[in-house]
Simulated scan of single mutants.
Amino acid sequence: MSEGYWTRKLESLEIELPGVAAPVGSYAPAVRSGAYVYTSGQLPLRDGELLGTGKVGGDLGVDEAAGMARQCALNALAAVDDLVGIDAVVRVVKLVGFVASAPGFHSQPVVINGASDVLAEIFGDAGVHARSAVGVSELPLAAPVEVELIVEVEG
């Protein structure tokens, strides 16, 4: 990709990456090892505030949770951008999504599509990734979703 390609793509989509969310524990938002950047799990924070709390399939609907998963993915990209610059991304390799699920809720993949879809929107074929969508009983701060990424980067 040419220098600044992903930055221009974000601008054309009118997507602005948020500031890096402050860690809620003893960890780094992202670390690089070789050609890969691994992000810590990102919650649906915007301007330091959770977009919502509760269990998907109980307190929240699928569409609302999918929007929160989208925010999680953007927060993860912000961590990548802060560490190496968004234009260093070669491809998104893996996404792991966690969904705080009410009993009997089985649509975790639909919720995590909110994260996957924004990555495909931004990166096209380079945004198509391997993925896990996992239902859990609780997440930090009572968040409904959490997303982590592995991305391949240049040099």
Rank of each mutant, 00 (worst) to 15 (best):
A130F: 12
F98D: 14
L149D: 08
L83R: 13
C72N: 00
S12K: 07
E148W: 04
G135R: 00
R46H: 14
L95T: 06
D117N: 08
L119H: 03
I112N: 00
S40P: 02
A69G: 01
G57E: 05
L74F: 07
G61C: 10
G54P: 07
V37R: 01
T7A: 13
I15Q: 00
R131C: 14
T39R: 08
A21C: 09
A35C: 11
G61N: 13
L149W: 07
G61F: 06
V31G: 07
S40K: 08
S137H: 15
L51W: 05
P18I: 12
L45N: 05
Q108L: 05
E138Y: 12
E138H: 15
K9M: 11
G57F: 08
L10C: 09
A65I: 04
A126S: 14
E64F: 08
A120L: 07
V31C: 08
L10K: 05
T7I: 06
G61L: 06
L51R: 10
G127V: 06
A100L: 11
V96M: 07
V24M: 13
S2D: 07
G67D: 12
E154A: 15
V151I: 00
E146I: 10
V134M: 15
V56Y: 05
V110T: 12
E11P: 01
N113Q: 13
Y5L: 09
F98Y: 15
I15D: 03
Q71W: 02
E146T: 05
V136S: 11
V151C: 11
E14H: 09
A120V: 12
P23T: 01
G124T: 03
E64Q: 14
L45F: 15
P103F: 11
S107W: 01
V153H: 07
E146M: 12
V92G: 03
L10S: 12
L43I: 05
L60S: 03
T53K: 05
V56D: 00
D87G: 10
E49S: 09
A133K: 06
Y27S: 06
E121D: 11
Y36I: 12
V151R: 11
F123N: 02
L51Q: 09
A21D: 12
G85R: 07
I122D: 02
L119Y: 08
S40W: 10
V56P: 02
G58I: 03
M68A: 04
E14I: 07
P103Q: 12
V111D: 00
E16D: 14
G124V: 03
D125W: 13
L139D: 01
V128D: 14
P29W: 14
Q42L: 13
P140D: 04
